[in-house]
Amino acid sequence: MSFLLAQIELRDRTGGTDSCVLENGFCPTWIRENLSEYVEPTQRHLELVVSSVALGFAIAFLLALLAHRRRFLVGPITGATGVLYTIPSLALFALLLPITGFGFLPALLALSGYNLLVIFRNVMAGLDNVPAEAKDAALGMGLTENQVLRRVELPLAIPEIVAGLRIATTTTVGLAALAFIAGAGGLGGQILTDPNFKSNIVVAGGLCVVMAILLDLLLVVAERVASPWKRATA
C-alpha cells in the first residue's frame, strides 16, 4: 500500500488558534477563509467525472450499436462490462498503475470502465423499447436501416439513454473521490488530507453532493429539451 500512502500529505491547518478548529468542529469562519483551497480539487474532480462519463458513454454507445445489429453480442458484452463493474476500484488502480503510471489517465480509465455496464444496458433498453410498429412503418415507407436508427430508434431511446447517463454521472461523482489514490487528485484527496476535521469533511463532501445534484439537473434539462414529445399528452 505504499503507493496509497505516497498520495497523502497531511497538512497543517492554517488558523489553528481558533478553539473550534482545535476541537475539529464545524467552523463557518474557517470555511469562509479556506474555501479557495477547495477550488482546484473541485475542478479536478469535475474534469474526472465529465471526461470519464464521456469516454464511458462513447465506448458503451458504440458497443450498444454493434450489439443492436448483432444480437449475439449482447450476452458477451453485458458479461464483460459486468465483470469490469465488480472489480474493486482499489484493485483496478493497482492493476493500471504499472501500465499507465500515476496521474489522471489510470483514474479516467478505471472510472470509464465502471460506467460501461450501466450505459450499455440503458442504451440497449432504449433501442429495444422502440415500438415495433414504428420501426415497421419506417422500413415500409422506405427508410434504410441506418435512417431508421438515426431518425426513429435513437431519438426514441433518448429518455432511457439519459437515464443511464444520470446513474453513471451520480455514481462517478462518488467513485471519483477515490481517484486521488491513482494520483489524479480531486475532492477525495482533499478529504483525506484532514479526515478528522469536521469542517473539511463537510465542505469536501458537500461539494461532491452539490456537484452530483447539479450534473443530474443538467441532464434532466437536456432530456426535456431533446424529447419534448415525452410530455405531450392529449
Binding site: 410498429e133 412503418a137 422500413l139 415507407m141
Partner: peptide
C-alpha cells in the same frame, strides 16, 4: 421501391417523437 408504395398498417406506427 417502398418510397413509391404507400404503406399503412393496423398499429399505424406513427413516430411518437
Amino acid at each position: 421501391l417502398r418510397r413509391d408504395i404507400g404503406y399503412a398498417i393496423q398499429q399505424i406506427g406513427l413516430f411518437p417523437h
